[in-house]
């Protein structure tokens, strides 16, 4: 009896595994995209909003010299989004001193103003904050006028 019952359990385990594997397959991108490397690690995950800043910061790391002070914010500024952008910049601009434009969803303009370089996610601002160093579809990178 034990064998029969566990044979049923074994088959149920197998069928369950097949169902879950099928669900996993159904979640995958189209097969045509499988061999196309994503531009960023976050292209298709729930963290996809990080994609824009990731691409812009990859550019910034080639423009902002090591040891430089840099800040990042959205254009226009949004303290909630800017809090996340600060964290992204800490990750993707190693060797630079990253100053927040907002922290814990509270703007920190005094800190942002201390940065020599400014990365703006979004369209080019109406008033340039300094000398434009680089522009990508994701945003602009500036060196502040002193």
């Amino acid at each position: 009896m034990t064998t029969d019952r566990n044979s049923l359990a074994t088959w149920l385990a197998l069928i369950s595994a097949a169902v879950l594997a099928a669900l996993a397959l159904a979640r995958l991108p189209r097969p045509a995209d499988w061999l196309r490397a994503p531009q960023t690690p976050f292209d298709r995950s729930d963290a996809w909003p990080a994609r824009t800043s990731y691409l812009l910061l990859l550019k910034a790391v080639t423009v902002v010299p090591a040891g430089g002070t840099v800040s990042i914010r959205g254009e226009p500024a949004d303290p909630v989004a800017d809090t996340f952008l600060f964290r992204h910049a800490v990750a993707l601009l190693p060797g630079r001193r990253v100053l927040p434009a907002a922290i814990h969803d509270v703007p920190t303009p005094d800190l942002e103003r201390q940065a020599e370089y400014l990365v703006l996610v979004g369209p080019r601002p109406a008033t340039p904050p300094g000398r434009l160093l680089s522009e990508t579809p994701e945003g602009t990178i500036w060196r502040r006028s002193r």
Partner: peptide
Amino acid sequence: VAAASGSASSADLIF
């Protein structure tokens, strides 16, 4: 495939 296509990445990785 999920990981390599950027479908399963954690936001905490970059945080």
